[in-house]
């Protein structure tokens, strides 16, 4: 099962490298997002772009990862149709291996997205105020969250009839999670009913953890601790993977 998944992860990575246009969403998109939010909204929201960059970049990384995690469902939905998966299913390998392989292979995309966003941020003035191992820890936590979140998209990809539908449904998942959080504005500025959603939204805790690990406690929301936020994220990861990975595998086995 482990070896089969790795072989299939390699397939995912090879295919990715052969279709460089697949990397647009992990390279161009985070750069665009950073430019739009920092330079257009930064002045209005925080009264200065540098201040705002320190606040928003961790959120933009998370947002980028949210979107890159959704691509996998579209890709798998296409794969299901062209018959390649029939071959996998007729081979004596674990039924979940093709899915685990695809999720594992996608780590490359997440890593690129994180790297590009951080690099571009540094170029336009973002500064780390933490140690190198905290930065690495941030990247690792981000990848872990992406791998677990991927399974939502995998499930949608297994259930939806067309890849267009996967895309639409994925956006429905991503938007409330991304914008209903403290990505771009401090949660304290939101109406109370929205604040209660923000408080339970796992994405908020991912963002707070990123802020803590990349910049420091000064940019985290009041009343939060880094350890507490990371614990929240780990619990969210366990729940996401624990619920959606079995569901996705079940949907895959069920699908004709």
């Amino acid at each position: 099962m482990f070896r089969d998944s790795l072989i299939l992860a390699r397939r995912t990575v090879t295919k990715m490298l052969r279709n460089p246009e697949q990397f647009i969403d992990v390279t161009v998109q985070p750069v665009l997002m950073t430019v739009i939010f920092v330079f257009i909204f930064g002045g209005a929201i925080a009264g200065g772009t540098h201040q705002y960059l320190q606040f928003a970049l961790p959120g933009i990384i998370v947002q980028t990862i949210m979107f890159t995690s959704m691509t996998i469902g579209v890709n798998l939905n296409t794969d299901l149709k062209n018959g390649v998966f029939d071959r996998f299913r007729s081979l004596p390998i674990a039924r979940s291996a093709p899915l685990v392989g695809a999720v594992t292979g996608d780590i490359v995309r997440h890593a690129i997205a994180i790297g590009v966003t951080l690099l571009f941020g540094v170029i336009i003035g973002f500064r780390f105020h933490t140690s190198w191992y905290e930065v690495l820890g941030a990247a690792a936590l981000m990848v872990l969250f992406a791998v677990c979140l991927c399974w939502v998209s995998v499930l949608v990809g297994m259930l939806a009839r067309s890849s267009g539908a996967v895309q639409g449904l994925s956006f429905l998942v991503v938007f409330p999670l991304t914008f209903g959080s403290s990505t771009f504005v401090p949660a304290g500025t939101l109406p109370t009913w929205l604040q209660s959603w923000v408080a339970v939204n796992p994405v908020t805790h991912v963002i707070e953890s990123m802020r803590g690990l990349l910049v420091g406690h000064s940019v985290m929301s009041a009343g939060t601790t880094l350890g507490g936020e990371i614990a929240w994220v780990l619990v969210a990861c366990v729940v996401l993977a624990g619920v959606f990975a079995p569901l996705a595998t079940w949907a895959y086995r069920r699908r004709i």
Partner: peptide
């Protein structure tokens, strides 16, 4: 198994 549609990986 050889399916109705050639199930090879194009990339």
């Amino acid at each position: 198994l050889t399916g109705q549609y050639a199930s090879v990986d194009e990339d």
